[in-house]
């Protein structure tokens, strides 16, 4: 870029072009949506199979796989932050939305156990489905990415449906919710990110 005299029109064009360059810096590659989408999908199907076909008592242990995913995510995020050359307000806000979601998940898990005792399983799937909807919907709105906010709404609709059906089938709705809210948008985000990489 050369230093030279330039007109008011040139100024305006330059401002627009630079703001667009920053705006088009699309940093969401969908990796974590896919990670958690697949982990929750496989866990919910595995729990359903153990519960419905084998009547295995400790069916809930399948969710221990989430700890592995948490450790992987922590390492992945640490490496990703180190590689970043720019921090946008969008990334920061979305980060906080998901931190709030994780805190709410642990809090709800604790409160369900504390208040409802053995009855917790009746509420856990509809409650978690309602919770899944919140960060998904907000991320979709902030990123202006329709598949995500539609996915968030799907979670809320499925949480109401879950309250009307048997507990074991609620697990299948959990699987359906993550397909709609995280796996499908995750693959679209991944495709978009790769396309951006090919263009730059």
């Amino acid at each position: 870029m050369q230093e030279e005299q330039f007109s008011g029109d040139d100024s305006l064009r330059l401002i627009q072009s630079m703001i667009n360059k920053a705006k088009n810096q699309f940093s969401e590659n969908g990796h974590l949506y896919l990670l958690w989408g697949w982990v929750v999908l496989l866990c919910s199907i595995a729990q359903f199979v153990l519960l419905y076909y084998y009547q295995y008592e400790k069916h809930y242990l399948v969710w221990m796989a989430c700890w592995g995913a948490f450790i992987y995510q922590a390492i992945y995020l640490y490496r990703r932050e180190k590689k970043k050359h720019v921090k946008t307000y969008t990334d920061e806000i979305i980060g906080y939305v998901w931190i709030a979601f994780v805190i709410m998940m642990f809090l709800f898990g604790f409160l369900y156990g504390r208040i409802l005792g053995e009855e917790y399983y009746k509420f856990i799937s509809p409650g978690f489905l309602a919770l899944y909807g919140l960060p998904t919907f907000l991320s979709g709105i902030i990123l202006r990415f329709r598949p995500l906010w539609i996915g968030g709404i799907c979670c809320w609709v499925l949480s109401v449906i879950a309250s009307l059906i048997n507990n074991e089938y609620q697990l299948l709705l959990l699987g359906l919710a993550v397909i709609l809210a995280w796996i499908i948008p995750g693959y679209i985000l991944q495709g978009r990110y790769k396309k951006q990489g090919a263009l730059t």
């Binding site: 870029m1 230093e3 401002i15 050359h85 720019v86 921090k87 946008t88 920061e92």
Partner: peptide, 18 residues
Amino acid sequence: SQLRLAVISLLISVKEAE
């Protein structure tokens, strides 16, 4: 100035940049 305006326009849209 072309380059200074470009830098400011870029930084106004992000939190920080390398």
